[in-house]
Design a protein around this nucleic acid. Structure first.
Ligand SMILES: [Mn+2]
Ligand SMILES: [Mn+2]
Ligand SMILES: [Zn+2]
Ligand SMILES: [Zn+2]
Lengths: 152, 152
DNA sequence: TTTCAATTGCAAACCGTTTGCAATTGGGTG
DNA sequence: CACCCAATTGCAAACGGTTTGCAATTGAAA
């Protein structure tokens, strides 16, 4: 029962751990960045930049600052980018030492999001990679359907 | 060995079959549409609108016309839209009576595309749907990696 | 406190896609 | 075949998400 930590566990991360990760890269802990991390920290599902912008406490920051912050956090591996196919990128905080790879089930009517633990079977993926001579193969996978409340 | 036809077989479709499908919906067979179908017909992989535009014979049509044509063809189920996560939609011709559902393996360096026959295991997908009370669940799935020619 | 690279706000630029509108045209009709 | 009109097109403007240049601001090291 050692470090039953990551795997893509969604337990809230300590703010100090997050700012620590930033500091290590000689990145400043600014007001906007702290506010953004705080919002991501308390949100269990992927958020669009606009949603983060809207959740910002009054006197938040510029939208462009959020775009720049998410680029930075993604580069540092602190957030994972997801694409639900609606044209807007979504971001989710990632635990330290976790690559954040996982999937979602999205309601096509109300946009409800469910975190999914399953992944594409690696045996099949390996076979696909080998069969085509590809290396470092990974996948992007999201599920779509009608949630209980949206079925007719 | 009856109709070993579709399934997502990539054998070129007859132009007459394509125009026929359009006519049935009281849609006009215009120059631009014929040209677009011709390009899709001879291309085995998903194409962006810009790529279609570039492949158009001289004196082609407006880009907006291609966007409108692809919307129409998608609505009629004649093409399937794919998303490789680079911000541009891609379209592939779909056989009659086929929903076009399938996946790709894309080289992240040179963008080479391989058509993939495998699909996400339906037993697992059904379990995911049931476990969350979702109905009509489907998925979007693409693979990414380094093709033989791009491995260092 | 001083100092300066990092960061931000703002506005403009970008890029894929959509749309309004007037001009054009495919394909039934007579 | 000439006519007619809804369907289609070209063009230019608008859109929504994202990026970027630049001058002003600021975190944190010294
Ligand atoms: Mn998630
Ligand atoms: Mn394909
Ligand atoms: Zn996976
Ligand atoms: Zn599939």
């Amino acid at each position: 029962m050692k470090n039953c930590a990551h795997k893509h566990s969604h337990q809230r991360q300590e703010m100090s751990a997050l700012t620590g990760r930033l500091r290590q890269q000689s990145c400043k802990i600014t007001g906007p960045r702290a506010a953004i991390l705080e919002i991501l920290r308390q949100h269990p599902h992927p958020l669009t930049n606009k949603e983060i912008f809207a959740s910002l406490p009054k006197g938040g920051c510029d939208l462009a600052t959020i775009y720049r912050a998410m680029q930075l956090l993604e580069k540092l591996g602190m957030v994972k980018r997801f694409d639900f196919g609606d044209g807007a990128a979504r971001f989710e905080l990632v635990g330290e030492g976790d690559d954040g790879h996982h999937h979602h089930l999205v309601c096509t009517r109300c946009a409800e999001v469910v975190e999914i633990g399953e992944c594409f079977p690696s045996e099949i993926e390996n076979r696909i990679a080998r069969a085509n001579g590809f290396k470092a193969v990974t996948h992007r996978l999201e599920f779509f359907g009608l949630c209980p409340g949206c079925q007719t």
